[in-house]
């Protein structure tokens, strides 16, 4: 089932909120996971795992380092669902 980019962003924001306690509206497409949201590599792995389950996609481990911003993750998930 394909989600719109807005739905993916909202879903990711919920996951980030669960994992880090950050407010969902702080999770914007242009934000960098590490530099802006202060998410470390293990939290990132958790977010990726939960996103895989939520959006029913596979995000290979090698791909994770390319997901610099929230927007990168949204784009990857949208493309993986297509």
């Amino acid at each position: 089932m394909a989600n719109s980019n807005e739905e993916i962003l909202a879903g990711l924001a919920e996951i980030v909120n669960e994992e880090t306690g950050l407010a969902t509206d702080a999770v914007q497409a242009d934000k960098s996971f590490t530099d802006d949201l202060d998410i470390d590599s293990l939290s990132m792995m958790t977010i990726v795992t939960l996103a895989e389950e939520k959006f029913e996609v596979r995000i290979p481990d090698e791909e994770v380092k390319n997901l610099t911003t929230v927007g990168d993750a949204v784009a990857f998930i949208a493309q993986a669902q297509a």
Binding site: S41, L42, M45, T49, D61, V64
Partner: peptide
Amino acid sequence: QQGPTVFKWVIS
């Protein structure tokens, strides 16, 4: 080890 891979396997 591939630490991140192991971490992800365990929690998933």
